[in-house]
């Protein structure tokens, strides 16, 4: 089976967000593989282990994304492609990214494309379904289980808590939800081997995409940080009153219940 994983490198989820001159500061930020894409990579490697074939991971980013690709290679991915963007290049929106990925993938043979169901930075959940549409293949999003038998695909999709049992066939694109698997840690020998595996680098010129397909259709007007949390409140009074008050606060003030 020929498997492609689309991956994004994101800020470490522990990073504090700093905004400078209206844009998110990317200096000195530690980067990781988007956690949902980690599930996709794990599933791809598992499917390869079961059915044979190979896994190619593709990302669009600056040269910093190389470390994310190396991690994927250490986990068991066979080939890695970096579509290299200049730091100060025009920011692609979801439409542009989907078109870039489609351009790379169209040149390749594939049965299955896996990705995360969203990125933890932008959180739009668009690139997967958009890519499927551009490639004119079906997709199943937010899957928590997938089985491939010949050309047949059976997946479980998390639909806001309900589980939809879905059948389809290859070629198809699926996006991973938490719970799909438990991503493995890279083995130490795997990390050392991954250092030596080649990473294919493509520039935007190499891809020769029509200008129009990359044109952003939307624009960020402003970025800002949420208001500072007011400092915490130690409840007072009789213990049972405190508990009652806490439940009311959680339900009506914090609205987390």
């Amino acid at each position: 089976m020929k498997i492609i994983v689309i991956m994004k490198q994101t800020f470490d989820t522990e990073e504090k967000i700093v905004i400078e001159n209206g844009v998110i500061d990317k200096e000195n930020v530690e980067l990781i593989i988007n956690p949902y894409d980690e599930y996709a990579i794990e599933e791809a490697v598992k499917l390869k282990e079961k059915h044979g074939g190979d896994v190619t991971v593709i990302t669009v980013g600056t040269d910093e994304a190389e470390s994310a690709l190396r991690t994927a290679l250490a986990i068991g991915v066979d080939h890695a492609i970096l579509v290299e963007m200049e730091e100060d290049a025009v920011q692609l929106d979801e439409n542009g990214i989907a078109n870039v990925l489609a351009t790379v993938i169209k040149e390749k043979e594939f049965d299955l494309i896996l990705g995360g169901n969203m990125s933890v930075d932008n959180g739009a959940s668009q690139v997967g379904p958009r890519l499927a549409e551009v490639l004119n293949i079906p997709h199943i999003a937010t899957i928590t289980k997938i089985e491939v038998d010949g050309k047949n695909v059976k997946a479980e999709r998390d639909a806001e808590g309900d589980v939809e049992i879905i059948e389809s066939s290859l070629p198809i694109l699926v996006t991973a939800q938490q719970g799909l698997n438990e991503p493995r840690y890279p083995s130490l020998p795997g990390i050392m081997k991954a250092k030596k595996k080649p990473i294919q680098k493509l520039s935007m010129e190499d891809l020769d995409i029509e200008e129009e397909l990359l044109q952003p259709l939307s624009k960020i007007v402003e970025c800002y940080l949420p208001k500072k949390k007011p400092s915490g409140r130690i409840l007072k009074g009789d213990l049972s009153n405190q508990v009652e008050e806490l439940v009311q606060l959680l339900c009506h003030e914090a609205k987390v219940i």
Binding site: F11, T13, K16, I17, I19, I24, V120, D121, N122, G123, Q215, P216, L217, S218, K219, I220, V221, E222, C223, Y224, L225, P226
Partner: peptide, 21 residues
């Protein structure tokens, strides 16, 4: 029409508009 949306799991927000179409 300017939309507000959370990014970075709610650690920041962005305002966005459609420029075309």
């Amino acid at each position: 029409i300017i939309f507000t949306r959370p990014i970075y799991s709610g650690k920041a927000f962005q305002k966005k508009e459609v420029t075309n179409g």
